[in-house]
């Protein structure tokens, strides 16, 4: 996983709630067997509309997405995270994220930041008034900064440590091999296996 320490970039205001994973990346894109090449599928249906905020010339090259509540609701598809990253987003700000999407984002180094809805509204107003305004998402300081905004955010300390160091979860878990083996040795015999029967 890529390290995330701090990122500064321009932002896109996405004034919609319940942005579900089918909007972020429609199902027909999920047939791909790679982790890249999803950028053209990001918000595919909405991008057909020239007025959609991602299509606006002043927001080209933006790297921070500021979305309404319940962002990432729906499916477990990690492709939604890959699509946002492939497109160029480094961080997403919302007042509420769906659990599976949030877990997936943090395992891929896409920082999802929870801020109060009123702060999200201020950021929306700021970047709508000045699309060139820069937003800094600082994981070391645990705060989001922009003109007139200095908002602290919370993140589980263990998750933050993994992100700051770009650590791979599987390697960390494999260091607990002795614990896993001990647990396996104590499992009851009645637990099912998938070994074919009959």
């Amino acid at each position: 996983m890529e390290k995330f320490t701090s990122h500064t970039g321009r932002a896109v205001p996405l004034r919609r709630s319940n942005v579900d994973t089918d909007q972020i990346i429609p199902a027909h894109w999920l047939k791909k067997v790679t982790r890249n090449g999803f950028e053209d599928g990001l918000f595919e249906a909405w991008r057909k509309d020239d007025a959609f905020v991602l299509n606006r010339p002043e927001h080209q090259g933006a790297t921070v997405l500021i979305a309404g509540p319940e962002f990432g609701t729906g499916s477990s598809r990690e492709h939604a995270v890959w699509a946002l990253q492939n497109y160029g987003f480094k961080a997403v700000i919302s007042s509420r994220f769906a659990d599976i999407f949030r877990g997936n984002s943090l395992k891929n180094g896409l920082l999802t930041v929870i801020l109060p809805q009123e702060t999200v509204e201020r950021l929306w107003e700021l970047v709508e008034a000045d699309p060139q305004a820069e937003v800094t998402v600082d994981l070391e300081a645990r705060e989001v900064r922009a003109a007139g905004v200095n908002a602290p955010f919370e993140l589980d300390e263990n998750v933050r440590w993994r992100l700051l160091n770009g650590l791979d979860d599987i390697s960390i878990t494999l260091q607990q091999e002795a614990d896993i083996a001990a647990y396996e040795a104590g499992r009851p015999a009645f637990k099912p296996t998938t070994t074919p029967v009959g």
Binding site: G74, S75, S76, R77, E78, V81, I100, G103, N104, K107, N108, D169, I170, T173, L174, Q176, I180, E184
Partner: peptide
């Protein structure tokens, strides 16, 4: 798959996971 919650009907703790976690479970069963 997010609809893994279905299996909770049996009193199982069942939840959907992303692909990074699929890889994690394949490699470690945890």
């Amino acid at each position: 798959d997010s609809h893994t919650s279905t299996h909770g009907a049996f009193g199982a703790l069942a939840f959907g996971i992303g692909t990074s976690q699929v890889e994690h479970v394949l490699a470690t069963q945890t």
